[in-house]
Structure formats: C-alpha cells, structure tokens
C-alpha cells in the first residue's frame, strides 16, 4: 500500500495504481470495523492526490468509489457516513473556492449532496453564492439550470428572479457570455410556460431588457443575439445583419439562421 500510495500521489493518472488499492481494500475490509480504517485511509490518500492534481479523473473516481462503498456497507443513515458526506461537501466547497470551474469537483459535489439528501433550495443557494462570487462562472450557472430543471417545470415567478439575476450580470459586464448562455435557457423555459399571459409577459420583459442593453452597448453582440431569438421577423433580420458585421467570425451562423 505504501508503494501504491507513492505512485498514485505522484502520478495520480495511473489507474492501475488505484486499482491495486481498491483490490486491497476489498480484501481487507471484511468486517465493518476494519473497513472503516481502510476507507478513511483511501480518503486521505486521494485527498493528497487531488491536492496535487485537482483535475485527475482516477483520483476523483477513487474517492467516489470509496464513499459509495461506505454508503453501501453502512447505510446512508449511519452517523459515520453522514459525517463523512458532510466533510466531503466541505472539501468540495474548499476546492471550488480555489478553482470554481473544476467540473470534476462539481460532478463529485452533485454525488455528495444527492447522497446527503440536501434540499434543492440549499443547493440553489450554493450556486447563487458561487455566481455572486464570480458571475463568469459558467459551471455555477449550469448547475443552477440543472437543479431547476430537475425540480420540474420552472414557474413564472422563479423565471422572473432568474431573469433578474442574469440581466444583473450583463448590465455589469455585457461581454461575459456565461450569463447570456443561461439567459438563452431562460428564454426557452419562458416559452414553455403554460399560461399564455405569463409567457408573453416574460418574453416581452426579456426583450425589453435586451433592447436596453443593446442600446447601452451598441458594439456588444450578446444582447443582439438574444434579440435575434425574441424579435419579430423583420427586426430579427436587421439584428442578424448587425451581428454579421460586429461578429464576422460567426457570419456563417447568422446567415444560416436568418
């Protein structure tokens, strides 16, 4: 084990090294008592590996494997498991503070909060905090969309708040594409609203904001791009022409969707 520890902490990409550890754990963890020591050892080693290489697929998987084993053996209700999961959640927060775009860590966090049974509201709150820290963090916007989608249909009250959040970002920095990407999803969700009045109102207010931002920042493509999906046919054509001239790299796209 000492040898593989050295191997996986210095070269965490070597899956075979991690596999030897998994085999040893499976052999050693015969009783629950013995297993506990093995698992905490694996969490320790994979944490060292992740500290050196926070984007290593095998290290993240080894950690997930270890925690899954614990849950399967001891049950989700076990105090030890709950404490471990809480510790893991805190570890994720720490790592995401260091690199808020680490998608391995976001994925692992999803696994942990799901295992913990964390409420949707609590996770939404977390993504909001990450967005407030840095609204260029597309990973957090993505996570927010995934949570809201998983909760079911997005209602008009929720949409209103989300539109505000996104527009707040592009009033602050209209060139940052993260919030605009999210905005595109919001428009799709607004279109899916079942009550026609609510749907029309949501689309109209989104369009109004995009028009204002486009007016404030005539050289910025993003509000125009959003308008292209919201305006009527004639205005849409004008907007796409304008886009072709300020964003010539993607002129092929603007022509094709015109």
């Amino acid at each position: 084990m000492a040898m593989t520890e050295k191997l996986v902490t210095t070269c965490p990409e070597v899956t075979t090294g991690w596999n030897r550890r998994k085999e040893a754990v499976e052999l050693g963890a015969e009783t629950a008592e013995a297993a506990r020591d093995w698992w905490s050892e694996e969490l320790r080693v994979s944490e060292i590996a992740l500290r050196n290489a926070p984007k290593s697929y095998p290290s993240w998987y080894h950690r997930k494997w270890t925690v899954s084993r614990m849950i399967r053996t001891m049950g989700r209700e076990s105090e030890t498991v709950r404490m471990t999961l809480e510790r893991e959640r805190a570890l994720c927060s720490r790592l995401l503070d260091a690199d808020d775009r680490n998608f391995h860590c976001w994925a692992y966090r999803r696994f942990i909060v799901q295992s913990l049974g964390v409420t949707t509201e609590e996770e939404l709150e977390y993504t909001l905090k990450k967005i407030e820290d840095n609204f260029s963090n597309y990973s957090a916007w993505h996570q927010r969309s995934a949570i809201l989608d998983a909760r079911g249909d997005v209602d008009s009250a929720t949409l209103k708040g989300e539109f505000e959040l996104a527009s707040n970002a592009f009033y602050t920095e209209p060139e940052d594409q993260s919030a605009w990407m999210y905005h595109r999803w919001l428009i799709a969700r607004a279109r899916a609203l079942k009550i026609p009045d609510e749907r029309d109102a949501a689309i109209a207010s989104a369009l109004e904001i995009c028009r204002e931002v486009a007016e404030l920042e005539p050289g910025c493509k993003w509000p125009l791009l959003a308008r292209a999906s919201l305006e009527d046919e004639k205005s849409r054509r004008d907007v796409l022409d304008r886009l072709s001239s300020i964003d010539p790299a993607r002129v092929g796209y603007y022509r094709d969707v015109a």
Binding site: F103, W106, A107, R110, Y138, S139, H142, Q143, S145, A146, D149, A150, M181, R184, W185, A188
Partner: peptide, 16 residues
C-alpha cells in the same frame, strides 16, 4: 444533454 445543447460526462454534468 444540457440546456445549451452540449453534453456532459454524466447526467447533470456541465457541457464540455
């Protein structure tokens, strides 16, 4: 598949 049309490594994973 995600809202942006892209795909992640697992359901819910960010597009990459």
């Amino acid at each position: 598949k995600n809202f942006d049309g892209g795909f992640g490594a697992e359901p819910g994973g960010e597009s990459h």
